[in-house]
Amino acid sequence: MESKVSNSGNNGSPRIENATVTINNVDLKLLRVFKCVVEAGGLTSASNELNIGLAAISKQLSDLEIRLGMTLCSRGREGFELTEYGITVYQATLELFVSLNAFRDRLHNSRNDILGDFSISVVDNTLSDVNSPVTKAVQRFHLRAPKVNIRLQTAHLDEIERGINEGRFNCAIAPNYSQNDDFDYYPLYNETSCLYCGSDHSLYLLNANEITIEKLKQEKIINHTYVTHRKGNPLFAFKESPIQAVQVEAVAMLILTGQFIGYLPRHFAEQYVRSGALRQLGPSELQIETPFCLIMKKGRKVNQIIKLFMESLGCPGAP
């Protein structure tokens, strides 16, 4: 959740003390709109996702505030910010929809009809990897459960882990750089990363036998904070490098300046190598293998939808 807590206080809709809140279908609709606005980071982004106008979204947020008797957010020229009440309502909304989905799953499973919502997150810049099973898995999953509402989102690793913990994602497919005790990991495949330089770099035109390990160690190397994890190549002092980047595209931009060398996923870099913009450096011993896994919140119950998706992935740990 990227929205900030509002510093403007909780003025606006009056807070109703000791009121009993009941939930009906209209309230669920309003809560879904509120949830979408929070996760989109504001009304404009939510408007595109919900395909309704800004005025309509603002009206529904106001209706919800009146219904609950509290101000949930500020949404003026200074941007969108949640109040303390808004944070509480958002967290309660996540819990409510998790419970509703569990209720619906139980009813649907009793009639052998697979229905429900399924939210998957995939780390960005993996589409070009032929080893990734995601596209085929979603295809198989949809053919077997066409009535399930699928929401597929790409994100960077921090957002993926946060989304799983908050219940916004049922599961994710992402690299496993280090075991996090909050999650269960199911191995899927490995991603290979290689060392590259740009066409303007001094190493680009050298013969392969001139590019020694010692020469590479003297170059300015990018600390790609995910790929150059603790299992990365020990020849380079990544942590001492003042040049850092997180996303794959950011690393590629830095390499293309011709000032630095750095690691990129081989499948991502191939298009730039073919065009002559990048050159792979060093022997195969410098490559880094990163395991990709299906990730879920530890202890999460594997319902029929998740089980079917794991089967579609060919996941070795599928129950």
Rank of each mutant, 00 (worst) to 15 (best):
R266P: 10
D158V: 15
V148N: 06
G232C: 06
Q244L: 13
P242C: 09
N207A: 10
V148K: 03
H156K: 10
Q218S: 10
L188I: 11
Q179R: 10
Y185K: 09
N149G: 04
F238G: 04
V227T: 13
E285Q: 12
N223H: 11
G282A: 02
Q247P: 00
A237M: 03
I211N: 06
I243N: 09
V246H: 08
Q179M: 09
I160S: 04
V227P: 08
E210T: 14
A172S: 11
T228L: 13
D184K: 01
V227G: 04
E249R: 11
D200I: 14
N149F: 13
K215T: 07
I255T: 08
E270I: 02
L157R: 06
Q247V: 00
N233M: 05
N165W: 04
S193Q: 01
A208K: 10
H224M: 05
L264A: 02
F169C: 08
I243V: 15
I261T: 01
E249M: 09
E219A: 06
L206G: 05
V273K: 06
G276N: 03
A208S: 14
P234A: 05
P242D: 02
L235G: 09
V148H: 03
K231L: 15
E161S: 14
N190V: 15
P175N: 08
E240Q: 14
K220D: 13
P265K: 06
G262I: 04
C194S: 12
R274D: 09
P242H: 10
I255W: 00
A250K: 07
N149K: 11
E210K: 11
L256G: 03
Q259P: 00
E166L: 14
N190R: 07
E249G: 09
S202W: 02
E240H: 08
H229S: 13
N207F: 02
N233W: 01
Q247I: 01
N149R: 09
I243F: 13
R151F: 12
T154G: 10
G198W: 01
P175F: 06
N170W: 04
K239N: 15
N149Y: 08
G262A: 10
A172L: 04
L152A: 15
V273A: 10
H201F: 03
I160N: 00
E285A: 15
I213F: 05
L281M: 09
H156Y: 08
L188D: 07
L206P: 00
Y204M: 08
I211D: 02
C194P: 04
I261S: 02
N165L: 14
A252H: 04
